[in-house]
Design a protein around this nucleic acid. Structure first.
Lengths: 381, 381
DNA sequence: CCACTTAAGCAACGCTGTTGCCAAAGTGCA
DNA sequence: TGCACTTTGGCAACAGCGTTGCTTAAGTGG
């Protein structure tokens, strides 16, 4: 929805429709989808879909996958995505651990690698370790075959400038302040690199997996508390990539002082409850923040994740759901917003990071420029 | 960013670019804009802009407006919007008052009308009064000339279904629950009708007026407290048009009971402070909610409006700004988000309502279907 | 007065999705 | 087995979009 410089011409049109079809193929998965279904879903004419899919097949991105049962005439030919036409590396740079995955176009993990990491080490050293991990996961995927890797998506904790790939004010790690992570890693790996917050990456991954889930908020409770927002079908980053500062929302005026200097922050109240073992109270505080968010943004779903939640997912889901249901009941709303656990601990973050690279191919994520090593090496021209 | 049924063809492309150019003409206002500037802003080639503007001129939507000073060669021809090529009616149905305005394409008010209203009267009676006001403002605009009125935008308090134009659960006015306001008024007036929340209408109007302001939140403090969100350049309504439920955000766990049944809602705390004359405390509570919002959504600006704010705008702006600045300082942010008063009391709501009809012409507002009397009588074919 | 610069239109072009038509590949009944 | 019917999907011609190459219009400056 970028208002500036958004004039559309025929190449724009072409890639838009191609991305749309590719996304439907991706969502259909193994079972595939027929040309006529694609036409119905996109609003394009069947003939246009035929032309678009012919191009995709010529480029090796789509292929035939059998036939549907006949309904009285010629049976429909089913098309599906060719998953190994492209790969992306997803990386989760956490405070004490490095997780790297290699995923294909369909989002399936082809290889993964986890190693301890000292995020407090000099930035160049961390980048070197990261670049080595990328190389390792590329080799490990298939033996001596050069896989077409489109780029590297990196998820990091704390605030950053997503467009420039530069970190800012990472609490406790001053050596990262202003470090051009994207360009450094792009130079080391020779691949385009996209950097984003860990919560955003996780939310993006979940948004692509659960198709049709609509708008939702992903709340990540680990060493800190943050949120990833999927609004209007796309990841919402805000004006300065700072959206999702959920942890320091005030839910108690003049409450206890938080590490951020504020008072009554959700994060402080929630983690204090966790520290004294009161999971129910932690969930209630989290639920209050979640209910605020649900009301403000009118979202369809709340998903909980992160290490702390993973330790006792049922308790958190139950506690958060109780607050949201109560608020909905008071507001006279019949169907309260569902609350679920994301599952998989920290793994969704690395997989979501890979989707930072892949999502633009499918027309997802507004304004995510994949740049770095070479300007705009995208698959669909 | 609607994901379903969004295949693009040539007419889509054409109207998209036409809307883009029309929007730039609108923003340029009286002074106009040259073809080459349009080309730079849109990213289109000058020749494409020439073709598009030729079409707009043929349709009577644009016209020449003199020349710029020469820079050594042929001087640029300046183009501008023809404001009276189209009009829209904006209506603010408040609890005790009805405000109707007639605005032209440029957003200028050509006629206005205010009358007391009993929102508690039977719905059909209110609609009859509203339809009469629409007819009156259409006649009053120009003497015996049939102005091209594109539709009616209606702003109402409380929750509703924007797509269907049906109200829901309006607190204190049960006769409106489920009433098909859009269709009823469309039948009475013979014009397409769009219905939205008052806060959304006001936010839209402000978004169009202050071009380039980026994302912002409009906080409306009147008989209640609500918010209108402009995210990613467009009005954000949420999945069920319920976004902006700002008043019942909890900012004090286990705080005083609110009329909604919850505890520690901003609205309850804020209005209680207003009732006892403590404007500073009201502003502080409002500021806390605003700061939460700024952090969560990373917006560029906060605007305050509504009758209560209009009574003492400086005090509210100062109080809200203080909280936001303090939070930014703690977060290490250099440039805190600006806070301003919207001004004009309730007038921005009616003008914004008119923009519910006009905005789609300029490519603004995602997913605002103007339907009603006749399906899709828009100006640009 | 003439060289130069800048703006804007004309004509031809490549490419998009669309339309009309036809071959391919099934089902179902006689 | 054969024929009528239904449905799918490709081929060819088409209208319309922005783009490119070139020409004309309308200024400035020496």
């Amino acid at each position: 929805m970028n208002r500036s410089n958004s004039g559309a011409n025929l190449p724009t049109l072409r890639s838009h429709n191609a991305a749309l079809v590719l996304d439907l193929l991706r969502v259909a998965g193994e079972c595939g989808i027929s040309r006529l279904e694609l036409a119905e879903r996109t609003g394009l004419t069947p003939q246009a879909v035929s032309k678009i899919t012919a191009r995709l097949r010529a480029e090796g991105l789509a292929t035939d996958a059998g036939h549907r049962a006949s309904t009285g005439g010629k049976p429909r030919t089913v098309l599906r995505l060719v998953p190994d036409a492209g790969y992306a590396v997803g990386m989760h740079l956490d405070r004490d651990e490095l997780t790297v995955v290699l995923v294909d176009l369909a989002g399936a993990v082809a290889a993964s690698r986890t190693a301890p990491l000292d995020f407090g080490a000099p930035a160049d050293e961390v980048v070197a370790v990261a670049a080595y991990a990328v190389a390792a996961v590329r080799d490990g995927g298939a033996q001596s075959v050069d896989l077409p890797v489109l780029g590297v998506g990196v998820a990091v904790p704390g605030p950053l400038d997503h467009r420039g790939g530069v970190l800012h004010r990472v609490t406790g790690f001053p050596q990262w302040d202003g470090y051009p992570l994207r360009d450094a890693l792009a130079a080391r790996t020779g691949l385009p690199v996209v950097v984003d917050k860990d919560t955003n990456a996780a939310a993006l991954g979940l948004a692509l997996r659960a198709a049709g889930a609509g708008d939702f908020a992903y709340l990540h409770l680990g060493t800190g508390l943050g949120a990833g927002l999927v609004l209007g079908g796309g990841l919402y980053r805000g004006a300065r990539t700072g959206a999702g500062e959920f942890g320091h929302q005030t839910v108690q005026l003049d409450g206890p002082v938080c590490s951020c200097g504020g008072r009554g922050c959700i994060e402080a109240l929630c983690l204090a409850a966790v520290a004294r073992g009161d999971v129910a109270e932690a969930a209630r505080v989290l639920g209050t923040g979640a209910a605020n968010l649900v009301g403000l943004l009118d979202i369809d779903r709340v998903m909980l994740g992160g290490r702390t939640v993973a330790a006792d997912p049922d308790a958190y889901v139950r506690g958060v759901r109780a607050v949201i249901d109560e608020r909905a009941r008071l507001g006279g709303i019949d169907a309260p917003v569902p609350v679920t656990a994301a599952g998989g601990g920290d793994r969704p973050v690395a997989e979501g990071a890979a989707q930072l690279v892949l999502a633009p191919l499918f027309g997802r994520v507004a304004g995510a420029d994949v740049e770095g090593a070479d300007g705009g090496a995208v698959l669909v021209p």
